[in-house]
């Protein structure tokens, strides 16, 4: 068994595939196919592509007959619905439209009336979803799968590799990680978690031999206005950023569940977020605005990766 590493770019992030495989030919074959799966999902759910499922759905908004979606999309919509229900409406894939008001590169806080103008278009409960038929009743409504497709893609790529017979390896899509399996000696992977205030130094390491790890933070898109940090963690009810934790990392059996849980925890804020993760029983790690780390996820102090 030899370790092969394949860096690539997808979903706007640096990504990496690590595989323990007998030889290079097999490794390349598997890596190519797994990476192709990630690119397939990126293409399929990209907001920027005219021919993507997301664009087709969004173009159908206001259309009386609705739109029929494929099986994979249907199951992703079902997942979004569960996330919406379990988070009391905080995890909402209709809230992406808020980016029209919040331009984090402008360093300007939007006017309340601009936010108010968008709120009628937000709300998963306004959709009519009866698989395979999806109906966005208001022209202008938008779905954004960006909140969980990357994590889902990590699961898919990892699962693909397992199918291909890989028993040890790791999929890393811009920090969202899904373990294919532990090292050949059954030891876990040492995975670094990004420091929300210093991208070059990991805030800690965790050991992972199975499952997925996903992080959300206020560092991905934000602006500082008058000394106050406004991050892209937007509450779909108010349209305003949540004054919350700096970052949350969660480990779950599936990367997509880890990602949704960390997103919801961020949206719930510092106190409620941790409490919610405790309730889920998932190992987690949070850093608050004072750079204090809390959580149940066991950390390893080491700089070697």
């Amino acid at each position: 068994m030899e370790l092969f590493t394949y860096p690539f770019k997808a979903m706007g992030s640096p990504c990496e595939l690590r595989l323990y495989v007998e030889n290079k030919i097999i490794a390349e074959h598997i890596a190519n196919d797994a990476i192709a799966e990630v690119h397939r999902l990126e293409k399929k759910y990209s907001r920027y592509r005219e021919d993507s499922v997301t664009s087709n759905i969004n173009n159908s908004a206001g259309n009386k007959s609705g739109i029929e979606v494929d099986n994979e999309t249907a199951l992703l919509l079902n997942y979004a619905q569960v996330g919406y229900e379990q988070s009391m409406g905080l995890f909402d894939i209709t809230s992406g439209i808020l980016r029209k008001a919040w331009d984090f590169r402008s360093n300007k806080i939007p006017k309340q009336k601009d936010i108010d103008a968008l709120l009628p278009f937000i709300g998963w409960n306004k959709l009519h979803w009866q698989a395979p038929l999806l109906h966005l009743p208001l022209a202008g409504m938008e779905l954004d799968f960006g909140g969980y497709v990357k994590e889902y893609a990590a699961d898919v790529a990892a699962n693909y590799c397992r199918h291909a017979g890989v028993t040890g390896g790791l999929v890393n899509l811009g920090g969202d990680i899904c373990v294919i399996g532990p090292h050949p000696d059954a030891s876990p992977w040492k995975v670094g978690i990004r420091h929300p205030r210093n991208p070059t130094v990991p805030m800690s390491f965790v050991m992972l031999s199975t499952g997925g790890l996903a992080s959300s933070g206020d560092y991905e898109r934000f602006m500082m206005v008058d000394g106050i940090r406004y991050a892209h963690i937007l509450n779909p009810h108010t349209g305003w950023p949540v004054n919350s934790l700096a970052s949350t990392s969660v480990v779950a059996e599936q990367c997509v569940v880890a990602g949704t849980s960390s997103t919801i925890a961020m949206l719930k804020g510092e106190e409620n977020g941790s409490a919610w993760l405790e309730e889920l029983g998932l190992p987690y790690l949070c850093m608050n605005q004072n750079e204090e780390i809390t959580g149940t996820l066991k950390r390893v102090r080491s700089i070697e990766f």
Partner: peptide
């Protein structure tokens, strides 16, 4: 046997 441990059986 966990799903991620099934790779060998699928060879």
């Amino acid at each position: 046997v966990n799903p991620w441990e099934r790779g060998i059986l699928a060879k």
